[in-house]
Computed example of a mutant assay.
Amino acid sequence: MSSQHGFDGSTTYSRGRKALTVADGVNRVLLELRRLGVDEQDTIISTNVPTRLDGLPRSGVREPDDPGAAVYWEERGGARRVMAIDQYLTVADNLAAIAATLEAMRAIERHGGAQILERAFTGFTALPSPGAEKSWQEVLGVPPDERDIEAVRAAFRRQAAQHHPDRGGSLEQMAAVNAAWQQAKVELGVAP
């Protein structure tokens, strides 16, 4: 007799029943996304499990310290979504939980709750990727509504002093600070 811990937190005992694998979880997620009209090529499954050559998580490897899973996808209309779960103790269970959530959301849509579904998915809108370009306000460390050129100039000087290569910064950081200052001057109507 073996025991299994399901993604719902329960423990089940069975004879000869195999445990959920990462591959099972991946397949469930991809199936639910296909049912929502999302192509596999528009999907990224992110875990701390080493990946196969096709980029999907590998089954049969040691469970990572962080078993969380996230799934990113792009809908037909171009909306980008992300759903992340780290509620359970294994990557496979967290992937199965994502699949179960997607299945439940499809049921809402099937039963006429399209507006409810859209509101629910709004919470899963993907954030910009870490490599996405930052605004000049973010780079210089000023509030998004800052319009005072002297306050922006002071922020530029602080960032330049901090990120200058002669003071331990890098050429890339300094280039980003200089580019942000140029963008700020253009946007605020100050001659370059």
Rank of each mutant, 00 (worst) to 15 (best):
T43I: 12
A19R: 06
A70S: 15
P64D: 05
Q137V: 03
R52K: 07
D93E: 15
G169C: 02
V29W: 02
V49A: 13
Y72A: 11
A79S: 11
A84W: 12
D93M: 12
I149R: 08
A179S: 15
W73R: 08
I149N: 04
L127G: 14
A179V: 10
E74N: 04
V152W: 00
S14N: 13
I98W: 05
E138G: 05
W136C: 07
E74W: 00
L20H: 06
N27Q: 15
R153N: 08
D148S: 08
N178D: 13
E32G: 10
A161Q: 06
P128N: 06
D145C: 10
E138D: 15
G68T: 01
A79E: 14
F121D: 06
A126F: 09
S135V: 02
P130N: 12
V82I: 09
N48T: 03
R17L: 10
R28M: 15
A151I: 11
A176R: 00
T90W: 02
S46F: 09
G77F: 07
Q183H: 06
D65A: 14
G123Y: 04
A84E: 15
V71Q: 01
H164P: 10
I44A: 09
I116H: 11
S10P: 12
S3V: 10
A92M: 00
L140H: 03
S135A: 05
E74H: 02
Q159P: 01
L140I: 03
L188R: 04
V61T: 10
V61S: 08
P144I: 00
A175Q: 10
A180H: 07
G113V: 03
D86Y: 14
V29N: 02
L102V: 14
D86I: 08
G113Y: 08
H163D: 09
T51I: 11
G6T: 12
T47N: 00
Q182H: 13
L140Y: 00
A154K: 04
P143S: 13
R106L: 13
A132C: 04
E103C: 12
Q4N: 10
H163C: 05
V142Q: 00
W136D: 03
A92V: 14
L188A: 08
A104I: 08
W73T: 02
G112F: 05
A114I: 07
A104K: 13
A107Q: 09
G60K: 02
V22P: 04
H111A: 10
T12P: 05
S59I: 03
K134N: 11
I149T: 09
A175D: 10
A107E: 14
V142M: 04
L89T: 07
V71R: 03
T125F: 08
T101R: 02
S2Y: 01
W181C: 13
A180D: 01
